[in-house]
């Protein structure tokens, strides 16, 4: 019994020696994906939060149920080839119009998107997470302004639908 325990502890101590020799098979990260390719898709709304920018604590409420409880999620489609977009709001909250054109502030490292709904004024939405081809979610925020002061910020999370 004593000998078995001794061998067990020797083996336990030696274990790191063998694991240290395992070949590193982590693949290279490779080139960073194009954000233009990343956003080029149809996106289905999965979560919306509403932030009260007037409150001291920036109180936030999840309003997803209000928009999604019927299972009919609004969608937005970005086309990177001709820089157009279209919205299927399903008759719900929609600040983006039904279609228009769009641009990133920087095609390589975008921080925001300018939406230009047909026949309406431009709308600035901020990207709150990067949007590469591998990213499953498009996360943006949009502020409602009153004379240059934001009173509400909507935080949207869309899921890649195709």
């Amino acid at each position: 019994m004593k000998i078995t325990l001794k061998y067990f502890f020797i083996l336990l101590m030696a274990a790191p020696l063998f694991t240290a020799c395992v070949e590193d098979d982590t693949p290279d990260i490779g080139e960073e994906g194009s954000k233009l390719d990343g956003i080029n898709a149809t996106w289905r709304l999965v979560e919306v939060n509403q932030q009260d920018d007037v409150s001291f604590t920036l109180e936030t409420r999840n309003i997803s149920d209000f928009l999604l409880a019927d299972g009919n999620a609004p969608q937005i489609t970005f086309n990177s080839a001709d820089k157009t977009y279209s919205v299927d709001a399903k008759g719900k909250l929609n600040f983006w119009g039904t279609e228009g054109s769009w641009t990133f502030d920087d095609d390589v490292a975008p921080t925001n998107i300018t939406l230009s709904p047909t026949g309406e004024s431009d709308i600035l939405v901020n990207l709150t997470a990067t949007i590469r081809p591998v990213d499953k979610f498009l996360q943006i925020e949009f502020s409602r302004d009153c004379g240059g002061t934001s009173i509400i910020t909507y935080l949207y999370k869309y899921e890649r639908a195709n």
């Binding site: 009260d52 409150s55 001291f56 109180e59 409420r61 909250l93 409602r144 009153c146 009173i151």
Partner: peptide, 24 residues
């Protein structure tokens, strides 16, 4: 410390809104 906010039995969210916004 955050200022004490009186407990409201009936309240609206958000504090300010426009007619196109979601109200709770």
């Amino acid at each position: 410390e955050l200022p004490e906010v009186p407990v409201l039995v009936v309240a609206g969210f958000p504090s300010n809104l426009l007619p196109q916004d979601v109200f709770t």
